[in-house]
Design a protein around this nucleic acid. Structure first.
Lengths: 357, 357
DNA sequence: CGCGCGCTTGTTAGCGCAAACATTTTTTAG
DNA sequence: CTAAAAAATGTTTGCGCTAACAAGCGCGCG
């Protein structure tokens, strides 16, 4: 009868208190070790770290958040992203949120009309009690919404914004440089006749990718045949159409650089339909490394955007700014040189759709 | 000069204390109203609810979790899902987590070898201090891992499991029925010669879909020509290959039912390559309604799986079980008739790849 | 040699909420 | 109409952690 402990399903996790006891220090010291912001003597720190390891201690995020006073809620705002993109975004953001002790609140504005939703979005966000928001494209390109966000004094991190100003916080990749590298890559494979499928002009990434292509070509002293530049709109269908146009040319390109994977997939489909073998008769490369790239056959050589990493970095940036930006009433203590605009590296992934000639 | 509002970034959120004051009751009473488990007089409840509304009070999840002793962390376990699937899964789960006051912890086992990871996965999960986990396919079909989970006494909800036993908690769709309906749908469009592309045999969904197809055909008194049944493996490439086989047949089908969208997309690509127009010369339908369905051209008529809803429901189920299943010492109070196996409805979405003949 | 200063560590006081127990009010029964 | 049970509400306590301040310690300098 004595065998009923009062707490049957008690937390198996050690608390900071137990760590403190084992290490022979106060809880506060343990907390300091955990948060690495204040000085702790090397010997003490080691002792504490050993105790942490021994007890397999993991701080309780709830308690930490509560005590710290920060509500720790971060919003992730998006509008009709591809599921692919969203999946990666979420994984990255979530990962980072865990590390930083934040909570992700999903704010999907897909249903609404993006035009009208500036104020609506802002209202919903500020009503949600969020400490800050991360804005994914294409909302991150929408001036109206951005203005509204600024006006509402919501700390905001933009992913792949139209242009980085000093006023905003952002994470992006260097589309132009990436496109340049990919163009170099194609040229390295011996191609000289390279077709390019542009994206829609209203997306800044699209413009930057085209610019990168042009400058690589220029750098190599190649002239660009205007008929080899076709405009698409980032859809599969537009890729198909563009490929039909390109392949109907008397002097047709040996390689096509589509500015995203959807269009590249469309190109491959069109080529196959027209009896043009990829990559034997035609090389095709894309951009983004979405699921399309590996789902179709042949798999696409493309540029991998570190979407998850961008999201993770956004959370980190936001977190840091949230911690510092507490306006201390009047005392306009300027935030030091906090990173505001991070540009992440991009990588060319080689698969089967580009061949050396 | 109407200067700065008092506290620029001070907690905009009311606390339970303020609500209590406004309603003229104790904090505890407010808490009771919020948690609806104990008796509160109608009049009091109304007063409290008014106060809550007036102050726009929202309970602090952190504090609630801390005080309640439940850590509220739910794990979502997956292995190499398509990003599409993952995106939907996450959105649904996250949504529901918010409603239920849980926190989602992403556990991605993509990197590891699924074969060997049974114990590893379990260890990582129990080490993470999770209260329960949701297991997405294909892990939810892996007996070893499931057994390990059961042995470790981790409360688990399976999404689309191999088969629903009385012992587990699951959310699934009725693949067979969905396939049956889609087959009816194709037949309704006048097709009599219907090719079917099976998925891999080791995935139970694949088998169920095939079964559904067969029973619909049988119900309509149609005999199935064996040469019209081709095996694929759920990949685009296998869809292409299958279509080539099917279209090379002397008496070829007028419609092809691929058991997922990836293969359906492959079929469309192959057909186009062979000069067979979709949907004019050949109708194609898929299953899942992934991003492929709308990305390619023509867009696929397919069966939409409510993935987000399944994830959301999983969280709800788990939450309910977590609340009830607290082993109350000896007193084996059986959980009442808690829902254990939920089957969600599926919907046929009509787009452009199926045509009436 | 003593004061003060910087470095390191400890102490105290909650964060917002719900569990456990205490108290008051209402209902029921005799 | 009163005692006891039941229902409704209040009080206290502490979840695990960190902020803010206090205290101990060693050191250099006048």
């Amino acid at each position: 009868m004595n065998d009923l402990p009062r707490r049957p399903s008690r937390r198996l996790h050690a608390t900071i208190k137990e760590v403190a006891e084992l290490a022979g220090v106060s809880q506060m010291t343990v907390s300091r070790v955990l948060n690495r912001r204040e000085a702790v003597k090397e010997a003490t720190r080691t002792r504490v770290e050993d105790a942490i390891r021994e007890l397999n201690y993991r701080p309780n995020l709830l308690a930490r958040g509560l005590a710290g006073g920060k509500s720790l809620f971060i919003g992730l705002v998006f509008h009709n992203p591809s599921n692919t993109y969203l999946g990666e975004l979420l994984v990255g953001a979530l990962q980072s949120c865990r590390d930083e002790g934040h909570h992700l609140v999903i704010e999907d504005f897909t249903s609404g009309d993006i035009k009208e939703s500036g104020p609506v979005i802002v209202e919903r966000l500020s009503g949600a009690g969020l400490d800050g928001v991360i804005v994914a494209p294409p909302i991150s390109e929408d001036d109206d919404i951005l203005d509204a966000l600024v006006a509402a004094q919501i700390v905001t991190v933009l992913i792949a914004p139209k242009d980085v100003s000093k006023t905003d916080i952002s994470v992006s990749i260097d589309d132009a440089k990436a496109a340049e590298e990919m163009t170099d890559h194609i040229l390295d494979h011996g191609h000289r006749k390279i077709g390019f499928i542009r994206g829609p002009d209203n997306q800044s990434s699209s413009r930057r990718r085209f610019r990168g292509f042009k400058s690589a070509m220029a750098r190599h002293g190649m002239t660009i045949d205007d008929s080899w530049i076709v405009r698409g709109d980032y859809t599969y269908r537009s890729g198909m159409l563009a490929a039909e146009a390109l392949l109907a040319l008397p002097n047709r390109p040996t390689a096509i650089f589509a500015s995203n994977d959807d269009m590249a997939a469309g190109v491959v489909a069109s080529a196959q339909r027209l009896g043009v073998k990829v990559p034997d008769d035609l090389s095709v490369v894309g951009f983004d490394d979405t699921m399309f790239a590996t789902s179709i056959w042949p798999q696409l050589t493309t540029v991998r955007q570190p979407i998850a990493e961008m999201a993770a970095e956004s959370v980190r940036l936001l977190s840091r700014h949230l911690q510092t930006e507490e306006p201390k009433d009047g005392n306009g203590e300027t935030v030091p040189d906090l990173l505001r605009n991070v540009v992440l590296d991009v990588e060319i992934v080689t698969r089967d759709s580009l061949r050396r000639i």
